[in-house]
């Protein structure tokens, strides 16, 4: 990205080593970091915000901040944890900014959740469109979760992170993370059931 050419040897280096190389002026090392994490970060932020353009901005800002603060990184936490913490905080700030600017998504408060229904345009004839609609509905349902629940559900079920790592990222005890994940999943489940995108758990076996 920054410079063309081989990344000889850099691909095998750990994140922490690459960051040290970046501090030493090796910009290709930072390029490897960007390539290593951009997709995961983009998916995390996109699922959180539901806006691709805003998600790309947040991810760019995350990398920029990491680049700026690369000399301040201490290996007390994993690099990926640090990265996701920065991205998560920026995504939350963006969400607040958008909320102030009336860019609200579907309301996530309890009352609103009871009344807002996403229009169901199904069924569409081809399977691809079907999948697209389902994906969009799931995304909307994720966005309807409170931010704290949304963040941990994405980190857990989409990013596949462990409770302990999520706890470090969101800065909460592991018990709180477990509770938020469970409540987030149940809400999401309830919403998607009502929309017909999940089997109805109330149906008799």
């Amino acid at each position: 990205m920054l410079m063309a050419g081989p990344n000889g040897g850099r691909l095998d280096r750990s994140d922490e080593e690459l960051l040290q190389d970046t501090v030493g002026g090796d910009l290709r090392a930072f390029d490897v970091i960007v390539r290593r994490y951009r997709d995961r970060l983009l998916n995390f932020v996109f699922r959180f915000l539901g806006d691709r353009t805003a998600a790309e901005d947040v991810v760019q800002e995350t990398f920029l901040r990491v680049f700026r603060k690369s000399g301040e990184y201490h290996a007390s936490a994993r690099f990926s944890t640090w990265l996701f913490t920065i991205a998560g905080n920026l995504a939350k700030s963006e969400l607040r900014r958008r909320k102030r600017g009336r860019f609200t998504s579907l309301g996530w408060n309890e009352e609103a959740e009871q009344h807002i229904e996403i229009p169901d345009d199904r069924p569409r004839p081809d399977a691809f469109a079907e999948t697209e609609i389902a994906t969009e509905a799931i995304q909307k349902a994720i966005e309807s979760l409170p931010p704290n629940h949304r963040q941990v559900v994405i980190l857990s079920d989409i990013q596949g992170m462990a409770y302990e790592e999520i706890a470090q990222i969101v800065g909460c005890p592991v018990g709180t993370v477990k509770s938020r994940i469970n409540r987030g999943r149940l809400r999401l489940q309830n919403k998607l059931e009502r929309l017909g995108y999940l089997p109805d758990s109330m149906e008799a076996e």
């Binding site: 983009l42 995304q139 999943r185 758990s201």
Partner: peptide, 27 residues
């Protein structure tokens, strides 16, 4: 049991959401 089954389906669904790729102007 049904609730548990539905949550399992939800987990699988979330894990298999199509990944987003960065746009051409990202880099």
């Amino acid at each position: 049991r049904n609730q548990l089954h539905t949550m399992q389906v939800l987990q699988k669904t979330l894990a298999h959401l199509p990944p987003i790729r960065p746009s051409s102007h990202f880099h």
